[in-house]
Amino acid sequence: MSSGLAARRQRALQRARRAAYGSGEYVGQEGFMRASEILDLASRAGVSPAVAVLDLCCGVAGPGRLIARTSGCDYLGVDADPRAIEVARQRAGGNCRFEVSRVPPLPSGQFDVVLLLETMLAFPDKVALMRAVSSALPPGGRFAFTIEAGHPLTTAERALMPAADTVWPTPLADLCSCLQQAGMRVLWQQDCTEAHHIVVEALVLHLGAVEREFGAGDPTLRELLTAHRIWSHWLRERRVRKLAFVTERRA
């Protein structure tokens, strides 16, 4: 693909995402949370000026930069992809710092709030993850995250889902056990399944239009649409429930 065609397709993808999320709700996020949901979760976690926030698996940090810009918090985003971190640095404001790092372990130091938005799905060992998060928080520190609650994928489901090695749903009972083992208690919980199903249905519609415009030969776009169609089916049938949590480290 020529550089000019690639640039046109990228612009078309951005237009499709903005249309799918709705006016003012797209901030560069990879998951299905709208900007208003991101800010609400951060507010419920107590993110405010001078609060130390650690954003795990931030990618290019669209949600994290939004939170930092609107709250004035002291923000650190970490991600294993150096290219994503470079983009995040180029786009960020003065109260944002970034590190290239795999998780776990977490960066040294303590934080008032740890965020993990739309990426807990990629961690098969959630006990180790939550223990690492707990160790980075003081008593009373908050961990705010989203999770895909459901039984592990079957062999047939893994064969259909692109990048299935990053797709590890967790039964809700197992999640609660992980939190308890890590010394965390739930402060707030919300079911986002219906809201996120609406978003993913819109993404399928608008990304499908991009595929028709540029042709179906691009494997990256084809896999993206395949994954979104599977997620639409799973959310509609409640094979997986999308949940948002704010938890607190117990004394």
Rank of each mutant, 00 (worst) to 15 (best):
D74F: 00
D74M: 02
D74A: 06
D74W: 00
Y75K: 01
L76H: 00
L76M: 02
L76V: 00
G77W: 04
G77Q: 05
G77Y: 04
V78I: 14
V78M: 10
V78Y: 10
V78G: 10
D79F: 07
D79R: 03
D79K: 02
D79Y: 05
D79A: 10
A80R: 13
A80Q: 02
A80K: 12
A80Y: 01
A80H: 07
A80V: 07
D81G: 03
D81T: 09
D81M: 08
D81L: 04
D81F: 07
D81R: 08
D81S: 12
D81K: 06
P82D: 00
P82Y: 11
P82K: 13
P82C: 10
R83S: 14
R83Y: 14
R83M: 12
A84F: 14
A84K: 07
A84C: 12
A84M: 15
I85H: 07
I85N: 05
I85S: 04
I85Q: 02
I85T: 09
I85W: 06
E86I: 03
E86M: 02
E86A: 09
V87Y: 08
V87N: 04
V87T: 15
V87S: 07
V87W: 06
V87F: 04
V87A: 08
A88T: 11
A88V: 11
A88P: 10
A88E: 12
A88G: 11
A88M: 09
A88W: 10
A88D: 12
R89G: 12
R89D: 10
R89I: 12
R89N: 08
R89K: 13
Q90I: 08
Q90T: 12
Q90S: 12
Q90C: 07
Q90Y: 06
R91W: 09
R91A: 11
R91T: 10
R91H: 08
A92I: 11
A92E: 12
A92K: 07
A92T: 10
A92H: 10
G93P: 02
G93R: 01
G94K: 14
G94T: 15
G94V: 15
G94P: 15
G94C: 13
G94W: 14
G94R: 15
G94L: 14
G94N: 15
G94M: 14
N95W: 03
N95R: 08
N95E: 05
C96E: 15
C96H: 11
C96T: 14
C96L: 09
C96F: 07
R97F: 09
R97D: 13
R97S: 14
R97W: 11
R97H: 13
R97E: 15
F98K: 03
F98A: 04
F98R: 01
F98T: 06
E99M: 14
E99K: 13
V100K: 12
V100S: 05
V100P: 00
V100E: 00
S101P: 00
S101W: 03
S101R: 15
R102K: 09
R102I: 04
R102E: 02
R102H: 09
R102V: 07
V103E: 08
V103K: 03
V103F: 04
P104S: 09
P104R: 05
P104H: 04
P104I: 06
P104A: 05
P105K: 14
P105D: 09
P105N: 13
L106R: 03
L106C: 07
L106F: 04
L106V: 06
L106A: 08
P107K: 04
P107Q: 03
P107H: 01
P107N: 04
P107F: 00
P107Y: 00
